[in-house]
Design a protein around this nucleic acid. Structure first.
Lengths: 191, 191
DNA sequence: GTCTATATTAAGATAGAC
DNA sequence: GTCTATCTTAATATAGAC
């Protein structure tokens, strides 16, 4: 994973990632992935023994991309830990607005669609959530460690607001529920 | 809908509701619904022209059941409007514990799985969310109307906590994230 | 690693007698 | 309204040459 990846494999994972995100896992057929990736069946199954294995690779790519794609840019843009949290929330907000409210959290979507799952997929989803938790918990610790604050609880609430506010705005096809929930959360943080 | 429903139709909707909830919509095959409902293909398609139409009936049943199945019992059990909110949250908590953390919000699950949808299904999901919003907003109004509180924003935050806390506990397969998020929310309400 | 062709099963849905 | 039988297409996956 450290050196440059095989181009074909990479193209397959990126195409699958986009389609799983837009349509969901079960609603996406292998044939569609093959067509959009411009790859033949034999190549895909050379790299991945099954559709589920491909999903696992997608989840690994989310895990690997969390830092470089989301956390690092936000940390570079904002020095204050609390503003980093709102910077992250604003990323979601912008994604909602740019996609006419069709954007959903890729991990949250898969988490709810794959609910019953109990194998590597479930573990990778949990790993992704744990990585998000760690980043947010780090910021909250930096901001509130000296005070009498339940950092772990505040982290759980923060993630709940992110996922729950996104879900509501997407369903209602308007930004208000997201903005309102975030505003209440900000007020609660007391900053 | 006011008189007693056809038994076969009812059985189909109930079976589909359970399977869609446990497995998701796309992961559930018509053959499985037919087998578990003990009904033949011809009967199902007599009542519902398509799988999507069946999903719409399921979503209508959730809408119709929200009051009798969830809101009314909670209102009967708790007089205080704030305790009604926590009574509702405790329903989710109990469901999580009783299902070994496989329980998910049926509407939330479908909302994220059906994201791209744009027809009757999306509208019915939005209607369900709106009905939840109305119930919670009513309780929050009763509790805080006299004070300087953004009732609409607090409603959005409440729903976000419900959905987001449930999602986290389900993914982590433990109750802590749910309890922590709810505790922070309660602290925030200042009651 | 990639190609074409194809196997196999399941999907959603329909036909037409009763 | 219900039955059995079946259609059609799509699904995931494989075979075997190159």
């Amino acid at each position: 994973m450290t050196k440059a990846e095989n181009t074909t494999r990479q193209k397959i994972v990126e195409t699958a990632r986009a389609l799983f995100h837009e349509q969901g896992y079960h609603a996406t057929g292998m044939a569609t992935i093959l067509r959009l990736a411009g790859v033949n069946s034999g190549s895909l199954y050379h790299f991945f023994p099954s559709k589920e294995a491909l999903l696992e690779a997608v989840l690994e790519s989310y895990l690997g991309g969390l830092g470089p794609m989301l956390i690092d840019p936000v940390e570079a843009a904002f020095g204050d830990p609390v503003e980093r949290i709102f910077g992250l929330l604003d990323q979601y907000r912008q994604a909602l607005l740019m996609t006419d409210f069709s954007y959903g959290c890729p991990i949250g979507n898969l988490a709810l669609e794959m609910g019953a799952d109990d194998g590597d997929v479930a573990r990778l989803i949990a790993d992704n959530f744990a990585a998000w938790r760690d980043a947010i918990e780090g910021w909250l610790s930096a901001a509130f460690s000296a005070k009498d604050v339940d950092i772990s609880g505040l982290t759980a609430l923060t993630l709940a607001v992110m996922e729950g506010a996104l879900m509501q705005a997407r369903v209602a096809k308007k930004i208000e529920p997201f903005d309102e929930a975030v505003a209440q959360y900000r007020k609660m943080l007391g900053t």
